[in-house]
Amino acid sequence: MKIRRKNKFAAEVATSSLNDIMFFLLLFFLIISTVANPNVIKLMLPKASSSQQLSKKQVTLSVDANKQYFIDKQPVSPENLEAELQSIMAGIQEPTVVVRFDKSLTVQDLVDVLQTGAKLNIKMVMATSK
């Protein structure tokens, strides 16, 4: 007499390589997290009763299509531009001027303004639109 065995196949998920994968992922994230912020030191800073701000003033120099010069919306003649910039930037340690220049003007007009800033050791930044 034949005895039948009931051979049922059970579905199994092989998880033997899953341990290796998890180990490498953990190692990867640990290494990346230490490299991302290597010099960060968390400190509780003391509080002060008064605060002091640095004197970093930003001045806007605009030139329209008619070659009219404006320093912070105040009209300035091209001949007095250097003197006006020098008087405004007198007490500032790192003077910065944002140059807003009309696109219809020539490159030579822009270079003349930038040379004025170079004479006075002023950092000139040109504003553009997107």
Rank of each mutant, 00 (worst) to 15 (best):
K2F: 10
K6Y: 06
K8A: 09
F9P: 03
F9K: 15
V13T: 08
V13L: 14
V13P: 02
T15H: 14
S17T: 11
S17G: 04
L18Y: 05
I21C: 09
F24I: 13
L25A: 07
L26M: 08
L26I: 15
L27Q: 05
F28S: 10
F28H: 08
F29R: 11
L30E: 04
L30N: 14
L30G: 12
L30Q: 05
I31E: 01
V35K: 02
A36E: 01
N37S: 04
I41N: 06
K42W: 08
L43M: 00
M44R: 11
P46R: 04
A48M: 00
S49P: 00
S50P: 03
S50F: 01
S51N: 02
Q53F: 12
S55I: 12
K57W: 01
V59L: 15
D64P: 12
Q68G: 02
Y69V: 05
I71F: 00
D72V: 02
Q74A: 11
P75N: 01
S77R: 11
P78N: 03
E79L: 02
N80S: 09
N80A: 11
L81H: 00
L81Y: 02
A83N: 11
L85D: 05
L85C: 01
S87A: 13
M89N: 04
A90G: 00
Q93T: 10
T96P: 02
T96S: 03
V98I: 15
V98H: 05
V99W: 09
R100M: 05
R100S: 14
R100C: 12
F101G: 07
K103V: 13
K103T: 13
K103C: 05
K103W: 01
S104E: 14
L105T: 05
L105V: 05
L110H: 07
D112Y: 08
D112K: 15
L114F: 10
L114T: 12
L114Y: 12
Q115T: 15
Q115G: 10
T116I: 15
T116Q: 02
A118S: 12
L120Q: 01
N121F: 09
I122M: 01
M124D: 01
V125P: 07
V125H: 10
A127S: 14
A127V: 06
T128Y: 10
S129T: 15
S129R: 08
S129P: 01
K130F: 14
